[in-house]
């Protein structure tokens, strides 16, 4: 799942890396939203992640969206000297709803970047405002179609019912899918329905294009863009399930990157009340090595020794 690497990594105080779309084959990945899904490694540190990335990346003829070129070895590129790195601090990532404690932790990391020789200034990507609705419309539309195959005919759960295929399909899916999955299938189906297609799906594709252009413009000037990985601190299991809009909003900092297909990494940048905070670094398309290189340098400079408090029996 698209935000399933950086955000959980941020919440757990580890490193999560989403490579450029097409660098890691999706063949074998159970599809949720094909045009947004990208497999990426999660690890203890940037070096582990880079080493795993080296193993899983590369062209795959079984995935038509796979990129047919070699970007080189990420793990050996980590130790390169960095010079003349220009950082853009994305204003929209520090917008309304961002926990000030998260902000100050991320700023602390930005200062560290400055101390290792990076320049920074502010940049605005105006269309990021529409990233969440665009992302969810595209993701749910694709998901509604990708999840259609779970009908109980060939594999997986099948309702215990002897009736015509229509009843068996319906009962199987009614019993087999969870609440959140059903919600997404219904919304995605709605967005693709004739009469709504133009105002939802097509509009979302247009927004996606505008966001891609926003990033493209930004990378003419900046090498790396930064901001928090998540606007809030980690929350408790199940805490947000009853308020989906709030839950979706937490993805505000991660999904724009998926819409644009760019490489991005979350690395821990501190603890607030014992809870980890992640900083997100974003690079231009296929600049994955540059991204990992800088992330590694920042990680060394931060030199965090994160050990979460584990409360027994909670």
């Amino acid at each position: 799942m698209a935000v399933g690497v950086r955000q959980p990594a941020s919440f757990c105080g580890v490193v999560g890396f989403k490579p450029s779309y097409g660098l890691v084959s999706r063949y074998g990945l159970i599809a949720y939203a094909c045009s947004l899904d990208q497999i990426g490694p999660i690890g203890k540190n940037v070096r582990d992640v880079a080493m795993l990335f080296d193993v899983i990346k590369g062209y795959d003829k079984h995935d038509s969206t796979s990129l047919n070129f070699d970007i080189g070895s990420a793990s050996s590129h980590l130790f390169n000297e960095i010079k003349d790195i220009h950082i853009g601090v994305v204003k929209e990532f520090f917008g309304e709803g961002t926990d000030t404690r998260v902000e100050s932790s991320v700023w602390n990391a930005i200062k560290k970047l400055e101390s290792i020789g990076c320049k920074y200034d502010f940049i605005s990507l105006p269309y990021l405002e529409y990233a969440i609705p665009a992302y969810y419309i595209i993701a749910m539309s694709e998901a509604s179609s990708n999840l259609a195959r779970y009908d109980g005919v060939r594999y997986g759960y099948r309702a215990d019912l002897e009736s015509d295929w229509n009843d068996v399909f319906s009962k199987t899916r009614q019993e087999g899918f969870g609440l959140e999955v059903k919600r997404r299938i219904l919304l995605g189906t709605f967005a693709l329905t004739a009469g709504y297609f133009d105002q939802y799906y097509l509009k979302a594709l247009k927004v996606r294009k505008l966001i891609q252009e926003d990033f493209k413009k930004a990378f003419k000037k900046y090498d790396i863009l930064v901001g928090p990985t998540s606007p809030i601190l980690p929350f408790k299991l199940g805490e947000k399930i009853s308020n989906p809009l709030e839950m979706y909003r937490i993805d505000v900092d991660t999904v724009p990157v998926n819409l644009a297909g760019l490489p991005a990494i979350s690395i821990p940048c501190g603890l607030v009340s014992g809870l980890p905070v992640g900083i997100q670094l974003i690079a231009d398309f296929t600049e994955d090595l540059k991204l990992l290189n800088l992330a590694y340098k920042l990680e060394c400079e931060l030199n965090l020794k994160l050990k979460p408090d584990i409360v027994a029996g909670d």
Binding site: A31, A33, C34, S35, D63, S64, T65, S141, E142, S144, S145, T189, L192, T193, A194, F197, Y201
Partner: peptide, 12 residues
């Protein structure tokens, strides 16, 4: 039927 056509994201 409403076939809910959309571009196949798995093929370029």
């Amino acid at each position: 039927q409403d076939y809910r056509y959309f571009p196949e994201p798995d093929l370029v």
